[in-house]
């Protein structure tokens, strides 16, 4: 009785029932395990966000302290190794899952009318995910990170006309420096996640609006 009253009170103000109908109580075509890849990507995004927030408590984005702060996370902080381990492996898995998700959508031709925009935003999400992988790779400030980023940014710098400009924007100067690290850090924890969150919102809205696509039949 108590709970029902409370729920009714909340529903009146929050529209919980409408929310439930719109998001959860939706009709769907017959499901398939391949359809879980999108939600798995979302889960990984949230997990990366959560572990990333924990890591940011101890991580210091400066060349003098980045490496040591990660050593501290690995050895000094309780369960720091677990949080970083999940974040590290989660990144790889997220790229993999998002990519396979894209392949699934391509194979079932789900990008066709009326879901063209969902696809478009999905490609944006894939690129953002790769961007997260790219920017996150530098943050440990170890040899692998430093030199891989040196090479990768110089590849970006080989683009005709705008290459040198891109290089300077990425590195914050001509060489990899403290500025590069703080730029990558800002991109990794603020800019790209903000863009990702926004795009995911639109992506989800479009999925609810058009419904999950059905697997194509012989006559489709």
């Amino acid at each position: 009785m108590m709970w029902k009253k409370l729920f009714a009170w909340l529903d009146e103000r929050l529209g919980l029932n409408d929310l439930y109908k719109a998001t959860l109580d939706r009709p769907e075509p017959k499901g398939n395990w391949w359809n879980t890849l999108g939600s798995a990507s979302l889960f990984l995004f949230l997990l990366q966000g959560a572990t990333g927030i924990f890591l940011s408590v101890y991580y210091t984005p400066s060349p003098d302290h980045a490496y040591d702060s990660i050593q501290y996370i690995m050895n000094g902080v309780a369960f720091g190794w677990l949080i970083r381990g999940i974040h590290h492996w989660g990144a790889s898995l997220m790229v993999l899952v998002v990519f396979i998700h894209m392949l699934r959508v391509f194979v079932t031709a789900s990008y066709k009318y009326p879901r063209e925009l969902t696809w478009l935003i999905g490609v944006g999400l894939l690129l953002c995910t790769l961007g997260m992988g790219f920017t996150g790779y530098l943050l440990p400030w170890d040899q692998k990170a430093y030199w891989a980023t040196t090479v990768a940014t110089s590849i970006a710098g080989s683009v005709p006309w705008v290459g040198p400009f891109i290089l300077r924007v990425l590195r914050g100067g001509t060489d990899l420096s403290a500025l590069t690290l703080s730029r990558f850090f800002a991109a990794h924890i603020w800019m790209l996640p903000a863009v990702l969150t926004g795009l995911i919102g639109v992506h989800l809205y479009l999925i609810i609006k058009h419904g999950e696509s059905e697997f194509p039949g012989r006559d489709d």
């Binding site: 959860l24 395990w33 879980t36 889960f43 970083r84 381990g85 999940i86 898995l93």
Partner: peptide, 29 residues
């Protein structure tokens, strides 16, 4: 001919996510 998202198909999503979470903990450990 299909099903409801809740609860018919969401359990698959939750199962896969849980599997991924366990896999990550194993990899990290």
């Amino acid at each position: 001919k299909g099903e409801r998202f809740w609860p018919d198909s969401i359990y698959k999503d939750l199962l896969v996510s849980l599997g991924i979470f366990i896999l990550l903990i194993l990899l990290a450990t």
